[in-house]
């Protein structure tokens, strides 16, 4: 089995995977990082979004071996100890979730947007979240949370 070296949430990891192992399977099943969710498993819903080298990707549609040498950030890697990341804090403050299943992917996607655009308009947020589905909220508070979180991040994650 291939041995993979990569950085996950700032820590160097060595993982044995199969070639067919998906990045999300490696994160959840090999490393126990179950904050990254699997929703549709067909690259539509965005529950599995993580950052690979700072860029948001759907981890159900990337092979673990494709992340060889990369730096992966999951929802578990955002908070600094007990303090929430500004984007997480904004989702809490603006009640940008109900059941919470889509939230990890929403937050990771939002962090990527905020890194590109520190003050996105409502329209820009809604366009950006095209690939993140929420079946509870109707998106309204998510959009508010992303705008507030982006401003709080001040353009840096």
């Amino acid at each position: 089995m291939p041995t993979l070296e990569l950085t996950v949430n700032g820590t160097q990891r060595t993982v044995e995977v199969r070639n067919r192992t998906l990045l999300v399977e490696m994160l959840r099943e090999h490393l126990g990082l179950t904050g990254t969710h699997v929703g549709c498993d067909t690259s539509q819903c965005g529950a599995c979004v993580v950052l690979v080298d700072g860029v948001s990707v759907k981890s159900c549609t990337m092979l673990a071996v494709q992340a060889e040498g990369a730096a992966v950030t999951t929802i578990e890697g955002l908070a600094n100890g007990a303090g929430l990341h500004p984007m997480q804090e904004a989702f809490r403050e603006h009640h940008g979730l109900q059941c919470g299943f889509c939230t990890p992917g929403m937050v990771m996607s939002a962090v990527d947007l905020a890194n590109r655009n520190p003050d996105p308009s409502e329209h820009e947020v809604r366009e950006w979240l095209e690939g993140n589905l929420c079946r509870c909220t109707g998106y309204h508070n998510i959009v508010k949370a992303v705008q507030a979180g982006a401003r709080a991040m001040g353009g840096a994650s």
Binding site: S43, G46, S56, K58
Partner: peptide, 9 residues
């Protein structure tokens, strides 16, 4: 094309 994450990959 697709969505932001699809365009990223």
């Amino acid at each position: 094309i697709g969505d932001a994450q699809v365009r990223n990959r």
